[in-house]
């Protein structure tokens, strides 16, 4: 009985310590986390590279299986076609990002996504560039399709990006058609919500949402996505809109960090 009481007291002490940790989290976590994620960037890059290699090998393996009944020559040709297809797709993607990098009016640094948030609550990415490559804290990150998020916790060789779909993300935005302003917040389900829209504004599904450029983080006019639904929360004096981001965050492989 006494033993059980002791265990319960210990457990309560641990839980109380954890509550204290969460309350003081910002001051404790940043330098610690940045160091750890910097050290872990090498295995992450390795695993990411291995995964890409596996993705390239899998079609070949299935082709070999499929072509077992075919003549050797056809097998070889098929494999070469497949190989050139993969290479040209990769080439096209890299050319696109290079062309986009040259087309945008901001100076930017291309980076590769090497990791993602381990939890299903937050939405963040780990990229393979850090302060050594010129990345700074609180800078906008974009893709070819639109705004992705902003840099947070920049390490020497890797950085974390808070996606616009993260519940902690907030950005000033406007509707492109009628310049109606609002605040965009992320949601755990991967969409965004634009709040503080005036009740008399005519926001409709399909309207494009762009950055307002109010703060110092996001430059003005970057596409975010389209309005999927509009509604009004009971008891509030403004409307809201559910915004579907133009960029599918689950499929991101390369991003551009604005300097």
């Amino acid at each position: 009985m006494r033993n059980r009481k002791n265990i319960a007291v210990k457990i309560l002490a641990v839980l109380a310590f954890l509550v204290f940790l969460i309350i003081n989290s910002r001051s404790i976590s940043n330098p610690f986390r940045t160091g750890i994620s910097g050290a872990a960037s090498l295995p992450l890059k390795g695993l990411n590279g291995a995964m890409r290699a596996v993705k390239k090998i899998i079609p070949f393996a299935s082709l070999r299986e499929e072509n077992r009944l075919l003549r050797e020559r056809i097998d070889l040709l098929n494999r070469r076609i497949e190989e050139s297809g993969t290479l040209s797709a990769e080439n096209r993607r890299l050319k696109d990002i290079l062309g986009f990098k040259n087309a945008i009016p901001f100076s930017s640094i291309p980076a590769e996504v090497i990791g993602r948030d381990p939890s299903n609550w937050s939405n963040s990415l780990i990229i393979n560039k850090g302060s050594a490559h010129g990345i700074n804290d609180n800078r906008a990150v974009i893709s070819m399709k639109g705004l992705v998020g902003r840099t947070l916790e920049v390490g020497r060789t890797s950085s974390k990006i808070l996606l616009i779909t993260d519940p902690n993300s907030k950005a000033g935005v406007i509707i492109q058609r009628n310049r109606q302003g609002g605040i965009l917040v992320g949601r755990p389900d991967g969409s965004c919500k634009m709040i503080y829209i005036a009740l008399d504004s005519d926001v409709a599904p399909g309207d494009r949402v762009i950055t307002a450029g109010f703060g110092s983080v996001f430059p003005k006019g970057i596409l975010i996505g389209e309005v999927a639904a509009v509604g009004k929360e009971p008891g509030r004096l403004y409307k809201y809109a559910i915004v579907r981001p133009a960029q599918d965050m689950t499929k991101l492989e390369e991003v551009l960090c604005i300097r």
């Binding site: 954890l18 940790l21 750890i36 948030d117 939890s119």
Partner: peptide, 14 residues
């Protein structure tokens, strides 16, 4: 999880 997440540090531990 907390080391790699961009959330309040300690929330996943708890």
């Amino acid at each position: 999880a907390d080391l790699f997440a961009l959330d309040f540090f300690g929330i996943h531990i708890f």
